[in-house]
C-alpha cells in the first residue's frame, strides 16, 4: 500500500491559498477582519500617548501644585524646542554615541562571558558547584554599589563605567541561561543519544538550542539592567554620556534638557530591547508563528 494513500484525514496545517480570486475590496475587508485586534491596540496606544502628552502639557502650563510640584517642570513644547536644538548639537550626539558604545561593549562582554558560562555550569556539575556560590553572593549587589570599587579597579573612568554596565547585565544573562539549561527535556537528549550523538553534538544540537529562549529572556532583562547601571554610573562618575547629560542639565538649571535626557534614555532602552527581540526571532525561527 502506498504510504500517501493512508495520509491522515482532516485539514492539513499547510497553508492553502484561497481558491477564488478576491477583489481588492474583499481583500481589504478580510485584512481588516484578521487584524482587527492589532489595529484596535495600535489606535488605543496612540490615543493613550496623546492623552499623556496632553495631561503633561496641562499640568505644566498651569503650574499645578498638588503634593507634587509642577512649577519648574518643563512643558512638552519646551522639551521639543530643546530637542530641535540638541539634534544639531554635536555634543549631544556625542553623549548619546558614547552611552551606546559603553552599552555595546559592556553588554556584549556580559553576553560573551555569561552565556557560555551558564551553558557550562548547566552541563557540568563541578563547574556549577564551584561557580554558583560565588555568583549567588555577588548577584544581589546592585551594579551601582560597585562604583567605588570599579574606580579603584580600573585605571580609566571609561573602563570602570563599562565594567559597571557589564556587571549589571552579566547576572541576569547567567542566571537565565542556567535556568534554560535546567529545563532541557531529558527525552530530547535521549533521542539524540540513540541517533548516535556524542557529548559535543548533544551540547550543540540539543542543550544550546533548547536553552535559547531563556538565553534571550536573559539578554532582554540584561539589556534593561545594563541601561540602569550605565545611567547611574554616568551620573556619578561620568564626563560624557546621556546619564551625565541629564545630571548636568539639572546642575545647570536647564530643566527642559532633564526631560530630554530622560526621553532619550527611554528611547534608547526601547530601541535596544527591540533589537534583542529581533535578533531572537532571527535566531529562533521555530518560535515565530
Amino acid at each position: 500500500m502506498p504510504a500517501t494513500a493512508i495520509a491522515e484525514a482532516g485539514p492539513a496545517p499547510a497553508a492553502t491559498p484561497p481558491a477564488t480570486p478576491a477583489s481588492f475590496g474583499t481583500l481589504t475587508l478580510r485584512w481588516y477582519r484578521l487584524n482587527q485586534g492589532r489595529l484596535r491596540a495600535t489606535a488605543i496606544g496612540i490615543a493613550s500617548l496623546i492623552a499623556f502628552l496632553l495631561v503633561w502639557h496641562l499640568l505644566t502650563t498651569y503650574r499645578v501644585v498638588f503634593f507634587v510640584r509642577f512649577t519648574n517642570v518643563p512643558s512638552p513644547l519646551a522639551v521639543y524646542a530643546s530637542f530641535t536644538t540638541a539634534i544639531h548639537d554635536p555634543k549631544f550626539l556625542m553623549h548619546i554615541l558614547l552611552s551606546c558604545r559603553r552599552i555595546f561593549i559592556g553588554f556584549s562582554l556580559a553576553a560573551i562571558v555569561g552565556v557560555p558560562l551558564g551553558l557550562i555550569m548547566g552541563r557540568f556539575k563541578l563547574a556549577h558547584e564551584v561557580i554558583f556560590p560565588v555568583a549567588e553572593v555577588l548577584r544581589p549587589i546592585p551594579a551601582i554599589a560597585w562604583v567605588p570599587m570599579a574606580i579603584m579597579l580600573w585605571p580609566t573612568n571609561e573602563q570602570s563605567i563599562v565594567f559597571i554596565t557589564f556587571l549589571g547585565s552579566f547576572f541576569p544573562i547567567l542566571v537565565n541561561t542556567l535556568h534554560g539549561m535546567s529545563l532541557v527535556d531529558p527525552v530530547l537528549v535521549r533521542a539524540a543519544q540513540c541517533l548516535g550523538a556524542r557529548e559535543r553534538s548533544i551540547f550543540r544540537e540539543v542543550y544550546f538550542p533548547a536553552s535559547l529562549p531563556h538565553i534571550f529572556t536573559g539578554l532582554t532583562v540584561g539589556m534593561g539592567v545594563a541601561w540602569v547601571s550605565l545611567i547611574a554610573a554616568e551620573m556619578i562618575s561620568g564626563q560624557y554620556g546621556i546619564g551625565y547629560f541629564t545630571w548636568e542639565a539639572y546642575s545647570l538649571v536647564q530643566y527642559a534638557d532633564i526631560a530630554l535626557g530622560m526621553i532619550a534614555i527611554g528611547v534608547l532602552g526601547l530601541g535596544s530591547s527591540l533589537l534583542i527581540r529581533g535578533m531572537g526571532q532571527l535566531v529562533m525561527p521555530w518560535r515565530s508563528t
Binding site: R190, A191, L195, P209, A210, M284
Partner: peptide, 20 residues
C-alpha cells in the same frame, strides 16, 4: 553498554527537536 544509533527508538512524547 549505552545508547547507540544501532538501536533506533521512538518515544511516546514524539521528542522531535522543535528547533529543527
Amino acid at each position: 553498554n549505552g545508547p547507540s544509533a544501532e538501536r533506533g527508538m521512538v518515544f511516546q512524547q514524539y521528542s522531535l527537536f522543535p528547533w529543527k
